[in-house]
Write a protein that binds this DNA or RNA. Structure first.
Lengths: 223, 223
DNA sequence: CCATACAAAAGTGTCGACAATATAGCCATA
DNA sequence: TATGGCTATATTGTCGACACTTTTGTATGG
């Protein structure tokens, strides 16, 4: 399903992954305080482990920490979402550009295969797999850029925050078929090695999806 | 001089800053192993402090760590430099776009003042201040984007690696007057609130500077 | 009744020691 | 001599305890 194969080796890793999952999926509420002592009993590890996990979460922009005070889970705001998608637009646009230059023919064939399987699911109307498929699609292009920094910042960093917004704001949209067409055009540009076009299409794709989500957010929590 | 006012509050902060400086400036060689015990005696702090510092350095892409093995300072390569500047191109391009939308008139006036003072220095031929001035210029535009994620990724993350390349490869170039003109055009676009143009000029500016540095790197270490 | 200062509590920052893992060196064997 | 496995060493991972800072609650004075 998903390409990413990050395997926890140390106990600190495991705790970090669990904590991240709990935050992304909302088991730990957005904006909540993260007490080190409390978490250390909850996850049955020492405080040192929790501290290290919190530090890593801070690097992912999932928690904010103040010295001598503590850490809180980030709160999800409309501005935050816009800012996040602006960064995605820049980085994933560049990723698409580089993917058009650097992906192998095999990888491109794999992308096309992925699109085909998505097409079946779109007809079936399975929105969950759609979500996972979209994630998978973007992952592959980012990895296809072959740019270490790009991959690290997006996949180890921002994507988890993106997922957090999606999960907690309940994104499963009427945008699926539209997005699917956009994916097709992006892949075509990559297959044609048209880096310029691939970047532009990816940026538009993300911009559209941002507007779509922002509209939902305004409709839901219009305070 | 520089805008960034990150003040170390805890002992861990101080150690992190020192270590980062030593790595960026080459006191600790690129590619060197970072022994926790060794560093803890060298910097006169406990191993826990060193561990935390190393974790943070990993987030900055300044060291690479493997579980149960240890951490090494990143090694500087031509490919790494290209990848780094590709990310800069994407992010700072977006930063310039957003700065054109979000900077206040006062901030833009400040940018112009900065350019003027640089002009004096260019005539005086003080290459050190030029370097600092260039850094300052890019900082201001990134901050002017008012995008939290953009600021964090660039200023807390990639910029230190950029500085590391610059310092250790001895960048003080014949490109100074050219770069100065490019800065002028970027500021003009921002002042005109021409986001599109500002982004394009910034991207070209970084692309040029990448090519310039890469040329030097090939000439120097052509192995 | 409000404000200020002080004291108690809770929480984070730091440390040294122990446990688990990887590396290096050595010996035995083919 | 080369190779394989074993032991010893060094290094990282984890833990519990102590020190310091922030916060909270309380009491006192205005």
């Amino acid at each position: 399903m998903t390409i990413l194969t990050e395997q926890p080796v140390t106990s600190s890793d495991k705790t970090f992954f669990k904590l991240r999952q709990d935050i992304v999926e909302g088991s730990i509420a957005s904006g909540a305080k993260l007490s080190e002592t409390e978490l250390s009993t909850k996850y049955a590890v020492s405080r040192a482990i929790i501290r290290e996990a919190i530090n890593r979460l801070e690097s992912c922009h999932l928690v904010e920490r103040k010295a001598n005070v503590g850490a809180r889970v980030v709160s999800l705001t409309a501005e935050g979402l816009v800012e996040l998608y602006q960064v995605r637009e820049a980085l994933e646009g560049m990723a698409a550009r580089l993917a058009a230059q650097n992906m192998t023919e095999e990888e491109i064939a794999g992308l096309n295969a992925l699109l085909s399987s998505h097409f079946q699911e779109v007809k079936g109307g399975e929105s969950y797999y759609q979500e996972a498929g979209d994630v998978d699609f973007h992952y592959r292009i980012v990895l296809g850029s072959k740019n270490k920094h790009l991959i690290s910042v997006l996949i180890n960093g921002l994507y988890h925050l993106v997922r957090m917004y999606r999960v907690q704001l309940g994104m499963a949209g009427p945008r699926v078929t539209t997005a699917f067409d956009e994916h097709r055009h992006i892949v075509r540009a990559i297959a044609n090695r048209d880096a310029e076009l691939a970047e532009m299409l990816m940026r538009r794709h993300i911009l559209y999806s941002r507007n779509n989500i922002a509209a939902k957010l305004n409709k839901a929590g219009g305070k």
